[in-house]
Amino acid sequence: MRTMAAVITAGLMAAAAGQALASGGGGGGMGMAPSMSAPAYDPAADYATGVSALKAGQYRDASRALKRVTGAVPSNAEAWRLLGEAFAGDNDWKGSRKAYEHAVKLSPDDVGAHAGLGTALARLKDPKAQGELDWLNAKAQACAGACADAPALKAAADQVQGAISGAEAPKPSAQRDEPMIFAGAAAGDAAYSTAVRLINQHRYDAALASLRDAQAVFGPHPDILTYQGYAWRKKGDWDRAETYYRQALAIAPNHRGANEYYGELKVERGDLAGAKLMLARLETACAYGCAEAEELRAWIDHRGDPQQR
């Protein structure tokens, strides 16, 4: 597979001098830092508005912005989770429960989503809150205080237990243990750059962790989503990879990297008709040709066999 020769923008180069983007990335902004590239409609902008409003305790403003994000990208778990927090801050526990239910469905292992759902259920006097507490306690017991999530699991279990016991709920911005949410664009670009380097080193688990940090800052940015799909695809989870490609293309239908990668995934699955459809989209987006279209065409011609490309 080729290595993309595009260079990250000057601001990102300062954080990652000389690093090339992962193969197949290409256009649609993937040659730029996330803070400097955006699609025509940018749910990441509404995400940033929602985060700023959350930080300021303006929960209704936050929920309005984040509802637009979830409407545009309904498969984005992080946006649903933050929407749950915004509703909780405004004491709208029904809205919070619904948002957190979406987040848990989309990201079943998300500790914060389970904590938020358990808290919302407890405030609504719903006995299902105990199920969320049991889930958190089981995770903590399996962790035995030795895993990276140990502090978060304890804090989450204490939060849900307090809600079940009727303790006053702290406001979401005060209880947050995720500094990347409010870290700012420079930190987000640095996390993205780190993820790119890790992908080039085939360290996909570590790359996904850095991409989660970048997404915490930027929200559903198509470049980040595309690389999340790429990393999951390389880990062999094709279904999960597809969800990220679809999110990226819902935001930016002409995103060259997402179209190429999604087409490659279709080749790997034996869906040549689907891959040719992605190629046709690339050829439309690249009126004068582009590397992404040529790479996908080679995948289709040789059925994804790297020895023949």
Rank of each mutant, 00 (worst) to 15 (best):
I8E: 03
L12K: 05
A16N: 06
M30P: 03
S37I: 05
Y47F: 15
A53E: 03
A53R: 03
K55S: 13
Y59N: 04
L66A: 06
K67T: 15
G71E: 13
G71I: 02
A72D: 13
P74S: 11
E78R: 15
A79K: 02
L83P: 00
A86Y: 00
G89L: 00
D90Q: 10
N91Y: 10
K94S: 12
G95S: 06
V104G: 01
P108M: 07
V111P: 00
L124N: 06
A129S: 11
A129C: 06
Q130A: 12
L133W: 01
W135C: 00
W135L: 05
K139C: 00
A142M: 06
A144R: 11
G145K: 07
G145M: 06
A152Y: 05
G162Q: 05
A163C: 06
I164Y: 01
I164W: 01
G166H: 05
A167L: 13
E168Y: 04
A169G: 00
P170A: 08
R176A: 15
R176F: 11
A185G: 08
A187I: 07
G188S: 09
Y192I: 07
Y192C: 07
I199P: 00
A206G: 08
L211M: 10
Q215L: 10
P220E: 03
I224Q: 03
Q228C: 12
Q228A: 12
G229H: 04
Y230A: 09
K234G: 02
K234R: 14
D237S: 12
D239F: 07
A241H: 02
A241S: 15
E242M: 12
T243V: 11
Q247H: 08
L249I: 04
P253H: 02
N259D: 11
E264P: 01
R269D: 12
G270F: 07
D271Q: 08
L277W: 11
E283M: 13
E283Q: 15
A293Y: 04
A293K: 06
W299G: 03
I300H: 05
P306R: 09
